[in-house]
């Protein structure tokens, strides 16, 4: 069943007619040609499809496009500003935080949100109870990025990259 959906994607307004079954991930990849978000598992288990939806990281594979009508989506393609890579993109290059690169767009989008969440004092499972501020230790980074799998096992350098950008 077709519905009309309006979204802002990487700053550009988009209006599309989609089947109600269309995930945000399929809309981005198949309809808009934005292939940075990857379809790793399509079950919310790998995080390769992570995008920022209204400023928050989500699994685009689990989000029905129709349910997020009016939403503002940022993908890995939308992180650079005026041709300059986002500090986390540079950090991933500097720290050699990848091997095959398939999970990288999701890792970086997720990490961008982790910086915001930590700055806002949002706790994680390893944050000491009662702590009102969050400092991004290696333990915090690992816990907060546990929804992004890297089958090459580049975790050590992913943590290093995120830590290098964390305040």
């Amino acid at each position: 069943m077709d519905v009309e959906v309006a979204l802002h994607v990487n700053g550009t307004p988009q209006r599309l007619t989609v089947d109600t079954r269309t995930s945000l991930l399929d809309l981005l990849r198949e309809r808009l040609g934005i292939t940075g978000p990857k379809k790793g598992c399509d079950h919310g288990q790998c995080g390769a499809c992570t995008v920022l939806l209204d400023g928050r990281r989500v699994n685009a594979c689990l989000a029905l496009a129709v349910a997020h009508d009016g939403g503002n989506v940022i993908t890995i393609e939308g992180l650079a500003e005026n041709g300059d890579l986002h500090p986390l993109q540079n950090a991933f290059v500097e720290a050699d935080a990848l091997q095959c690169g398939y999970c990288t767009p999701g890792q970086i989008c997720s990490a961008v949100a982790v910086l915001d969440e930590a700055a806002a004092g949002v706790p994680s499972y390893v944050t000491p109870p009662g702590a009102s501020t969050v400092s991004l230790s290696d333990e915090e980074i690992r816990e907060r990025l546990s929804g992004n799998l890297c089958r090459c096992g580049a975790y050590v350098n992913i943590v290093r990259a995120v830590r290098s950008v964390a305040p």
Binding site: G44, G47, L53, V58, N59, S124, L145, S146, G147
Partner: peptide
């Protein structure tokens, strides 16, 4: 779950 899933 994960940070992404808890956001949804």
């Amino acid at each position: 779950a994960s940070g992404q899933i808890r956001n949804l």
